[in-house]
Design a protein around this nucleic acid. Structure first.
Lengths: 698, 698
DNA sequence: CTGGTTATTCTAGAACA
DNA sequence: TGTTCTAGAATAACCAG
């Protein structure tokens, strides 16, 4: 196309919209035509224009240029594509004088391109610009191969063979192990699901327990509270304290030493658990009956346990309906943890919450002012004979002290709580393999057989060892099994991995020998080829990984905000109207030392001890009373009961949701993954002659 | 690099700003570290963030990203440079779904990149990402693996060499993966341990709860029942039902709607939890008091929620002995949910069952002769108006039993104690947690520093990081982490396994080609030599394996009978003498929400107090007290009150004890479990030769 | 300061439409 | 030919010894 064309083109008229003649337009590739027009169009001067002397052009702001100009001329808006074309046509970028100078953030450094035949006012030269052709091909493999060849002498027949076989066998072994691992993992996964289920169940069970306890308490409160209500409602919590101090002391004497600790403890407990702040602050305050105390009644266990679950479980916090939803681990995994965690935290416990709580505590104590001791004292005072008035007073006392009742309830509620001991058994030991051979299993034993140490630590309460303790575990037994399974599987997998490791060593060795047999230097080869093989394998693996049906979401994706919904935050039903009775009971003696009583105490044994008769009282009246009370309580309960449901504030963190879209993309990607990456063009032929090989810049 | 790096990584502590351990940081190229941080930093979410499932990342607005983010981390602000690096490390762009769709001018289409080893929360995988090496002659390392790829053209001439290398590389890659898997498994194992512990604790807690509740109920029954006793003792169990229907009804009225459901539920629950049939059949029959209601008190939740477990659990409705049977997860998994559910239900609440139970009741009641119902009835009979005498009697009842009262109070007070110390798993980890970037919270448990996202997920519960959040989750929070972590790990491991699988295939193929190049027939060779090599390898492996003592057990071997001992079935202590009360209570206010009340108590806090274990003491005391009381009542009621100890039927179910001994057995079983099942002989040597070379995208 | 690796930049390869 | 994604290649920057 040399001269003739050029001449022809040169003649072209360029004033019109097109700078090229018809003939030229048929010869010159669209890209060049468009480029010429774009650069020449003064309307684009802000974004792209000729250099001062017209032998190159600048793209002043490639971002805006891409958005505002490219789209008008091309099917895309990608600056990179534009550049690709330029390069394709032999344009070169002229490096900016001060390459990295203007970093003013908002400023984009201009791109300057030139081409020997791309000049202002000379569209006729465009025909001289040739698009680079593709390689015509040929090259490639040979080159690469050749380079490799020199060194390699695969010649020797004998030796290698065996090694090769060993390699093959080793690989097979690895494969088998791999499969074993896969199986293990699968089993583990299932096991994990079960575990999850178990956890969820435990949660629910706990909730129910709590519920039951609450009901009982409420009932009691209702029973006793109502009567109190009628009499002292006005007084509310405040009066009682002063009344029976003496008796209190008496009782306390014995336990004096500890009493303080105990109370404190309780207070703390309250704080901690409440950390969740399920109850609305408002609800808590101002109620003569001190609803909050009641609120506290729920068993802390759930809190203990649930936090995790709650956070991760798919249950929606707000709706109870969700509770029953089963949570599938896999689902859980897909969620974003960050979101969820944040949510949980934020929603859960703000400093404010604490302070609020702290405040609450004191009151509580005041409420409890009337201790059982007091009651006792009164009773004593009144004497065995007891006259009505005295009795009444005593009872009133009891009834009037809602706080105490509350405490009782709380105590009940708390009784079982056990913070989860998360101690972990085995180890902090990071090293992966270690366990395998020796001590494998802390776990295997059984769920329970965790070895002694662990057990002792975690289950000090006597759960395990002592026969007495065992009973405790009774109910749940079966449920846990899956857990064990899980452990076992883990062990197995672990082991398998170790074995594979061993296999690999063997394999490696055999391969090395093979190579040596072949007369090559394994190391050298490795150095040379390593990268290649590795790359391929890696890619292959990657693809496979995504390919395999597991469809397992990325591991960590885990829990996102939504997760929190899985296990709804406990919400506190608050209606606790009357409670003093219990309170009185509970308050009883701070002094008592409970520490000792722990597990050893076998309830069964003690039971008989007193053998006192509680019985005799006059039944009829009592019954009547109870009836009345219960009614009252019911009413009361319902009335205030709204408190219960009310607390919307609970857990639900809003942030959870954002995650969603995007999945499809992943899908695509997956597919793409499966395909192996293009093989490297091993063409290292000496590059196409004409093209500038050296980099121009600088 | 593999081992060193990995080991180093494993060891690392990562709490600092970086998600990686120190060691890791030395091995992982800066670019990858930066990339991980950038992507994981929530502050950049607007511009760059993980995909939903964490297996890729998006650059939402590359222009802004380039300006605002790149400059902060790199020496440039060029998105193209960033992309080049990504490609250099083997990242691939995932084409946008609708490539050129959103042309809204102001909108930039997001760029989505992925890499098989670049996942949210798995910075430990970064060490697997290899930068492509310069030509040296072949291809990139990363995809070195590709060379293994069957499609691999190099085979022809010098083929073998390259193949050998590819094999080596592939093996190395596999090794790395293997190690990663090992680490994962380790982590998983730990996680599982924790989970187990939690489950066990939950169980125990639950049991205690139940026990407490039962005791309380009993106590109440005793207290009130006793008074009734005096008056109506003669009436005994028979009268009450009819007598006080009214009160009962009244209470139920409010809940009428639910009452039925509730009762049903309870019944079911009973079956499920109690499914174990804590109450002897004989005991159950003939009681007009409807003990079953009491029985139901134990938390039914299990039934509701644990369909899987419950359903599959071997509980036989009739025989207690079955309780201890262990359920194997695998078995469980295999079972049909429908079947299980049916079982539960049928056993739980069939009309028959109910009736039977009703009949049973009497005996038991005979012990507790005076049931609350009776009391109520009496009360009703006596009339609403209380006279002094009546009051006195009632109060006396309560007050006269100072010992009991005191105990009760004590018990209640102690209630909050919490036996189990919560140590957090993560705590064990020496490395401080990185709060650094906000969300990173690596799960340290394993040698690896998995961190980042995972952490967010795992620790959402508030285990560590945020003080604020913590409160809610306080106790339990950390406990669940393991679950999440576990899941994540599973996922990872899974993935890894899959990848390895792929690698193996590739390797296999390359080996085959190698062999072919060598002029051998792979199959033939294999046939011939297979046994030999296999033998060797096998022996080697076997030795290792057996040495460990692990012998991998068959996957599903899972839990065998002995396991059941591990966790004994929940048994329900059933001594429910008086129950209407409870009944009333339970039916009581459905509206009340108790859920929240729990958490406030923080068991953990209690623990430390004196350093003493207050733990269960409270519970025990309470229990004891209650027992005592109940005994008393029992005595009164029966006159026979063999009371506490006597009544075997009472709470402590005898069978429970039996459980303990079983534990060891479980241990044994575990061991047996470990033995591996025969490996499947799979000779898949001839892998599909040509894997697709096609370009990935589109 | 020198060799080896990573980073940055520009250009080319390749696949596909 | 155009578009897109990825690789090659040259050079710059770094870092350990």
């Amino acid at each position: 196309m040399s001269l003739d064309q050029q001449v022809a083109l040169a003649r072209s008229s360029r004033g019109e919209s097109s700078h090229l003649s018809k003939a030229a337009r048929q010869v010159v590739p669209p890209f060049l035509q468009k480029l010429y027009e774009i650069v020449s169009d003064p309307r684009n001067d802000e974004l792209i224009r000729w250099s001062e002397n017209g032998d190159s052009f600048y793209v002043l702001n490639h971002e805006r240029f891409a958005r505002e100009v490219l789209g008008r001329w091309f099917k895309h808006q990608k600056f990179t594509s534009f550049v690709r074309q330029l390069n394709m046509y032999g344009f070169h970028k002229i490096p900016h004088l001060q390459q990295g100078v203007l970093k003013s953030d908002t400023d984009t450094e201009p791109w300057n391109f030139e081409h020997p035949h791309f000049h202002r006012g000379q569209p006729d030269l465009l025909c001289l610009i040739q698009r680079k052709k593709q390689p015509a091909h040929g090259v490639g493999d040979d080159d690469a191969v050749d380079s490799l060849n020199p060194a390699n002498p695969l010649s020797l027949p004998g030796g290698p063979v065996l090694d090769v076989n060993s390699v093959l066998n080793g690989i097979q072994a690895i494969k088998r192990h791999q499969q074993a691992i896969s199986a293990e993992l699968n089993a583990l996964k299932k096991s994990n699901d079960i575990l999850w289920e178990e956890a969820a169940q435990a949660r629910r069970r706990h909730d129910k327990h709590q519920d039951t306890i609450n009901r009982i308490l409420k009932f009691l409160a209702g029973v006793f509270g109502s009567s109190a209500d009628g009499v002292h409602k006005a007084d509310g919590p405040h009066t009682p304290t002063a009344v029976v101090p003496r008796a209190h002391q008496r009782l306390m004497i014995a336990d004096a030493a500890r009493s303080k600790a105990k109370t404190v403890e309780i207070a703390d407990a309250d704080d901690d658990d409440d950390g969740s702040h399920r109850v609305q602050p408002q609800e808590r305050h101002g109620s003569p009956f001190r609803i909050e105390q009641f609120a506290s009644i729920d068993t802390p266990d759930s809190s203990v346990f649930s936090p995790t679950l709650a956070a991760q479980a798919p249950f929606s916090p707000t709706a109870d309906s969700n509770r029953h939803t089963s949570v599938r681990p896999s689902e859980v995994l897909n969620r974003n943890s960050s979101g969820s965690s944040d949510n949980v935290r934020s929603s859960a416990s703000t400093p404010t919450g604490h302070s609020a709580r702290g405040n609450d505590v004191p009151q509580r104590h005041s409420d409890s002012a009337l201790s059982p001791a007091a009651l006792t004292a009164l009773a004593a005072a009144s004497g065995a004979g007891g006259n009505n008035e005295i009795w009444q007073a005593a009872i009133q006392q009891v009834l009037n002290t809602p706080g105490q009742l509350q405490r009782l309830m709380q105590a009940l509620a708390n009784t079982q709580q056990q913070p989860f001991p998360l101690t972990h058994p085995s180890d902090s030991n990071p090293s992966p393999r270690p366990a395998q051979h020796g001590q494998i299993a802390p776990y295997d034993s059984n769920g329970f057989d965790y070895n002694g140490d662990r057990f002792r630590q975690d289950i000090p309460v006597g759960a395990s060892t002592s026969p007495v303790a065992m009973p405790l575990l009774s109910d749940s037994g079966p449920a846990l099994e899956p857990l064990m399974d899980n452990m076992q599987r883990l062990q197995k997998t672990y082991q398998t991995a170790a074995e594979i490791e061993a296999d690999m060593d063997v394999l490696q060795h055999s391969i090395n020998s093979l190579i040596e047999n072949l007369g090559m230097d394994p190391l050298a080869l490795q150095q040379a080829e390593n990268s290649i093989a590795a790359a391929r394998v890696a890619s292959a693996m990657g693809a496979a990984g995504s390919a395999n049906g597991y469809g397992l979401p990325s591991v960590n994706t885990g829990l996102s905000g939504p997760d929190s919904s899985m296990l709804p935050p406990l919400d506190a039903p608050q209606d606790t109207s009357g409670d003093f009775f219990l309170d009185a009971l509970l308050n009883g003696d701070p002094g008592i030392d409970y520490a000792d009583m722990t597990d050893r105490f076998d309830p069964a044994t003690h039971i008989d001890g007193a053998g006192t008769r509680v019985a005799d009282a006059s039944t009829d009246q009592l019954t009547a009373f109870l009836d009345e009370v219960s009614d009252a309580s019911t009413v009361i309960g319902n009335g205030s009961g709204s408190g219960t449901n009310g607390t919307p504030s609970t857990m639900r963190s809003p942030d959870v949701k954002s995650v969603a879209p995007g999945a499809p993309a992943a899908g695509q990607k997956r597919k793409s993954e499966l395909e192996l990456p293009p093989l490297p063009a091993q063409t290292t032929l000496e590059l196409p002659p004409g093209v500038p090989k050296a980099k121009r810049k600088r």
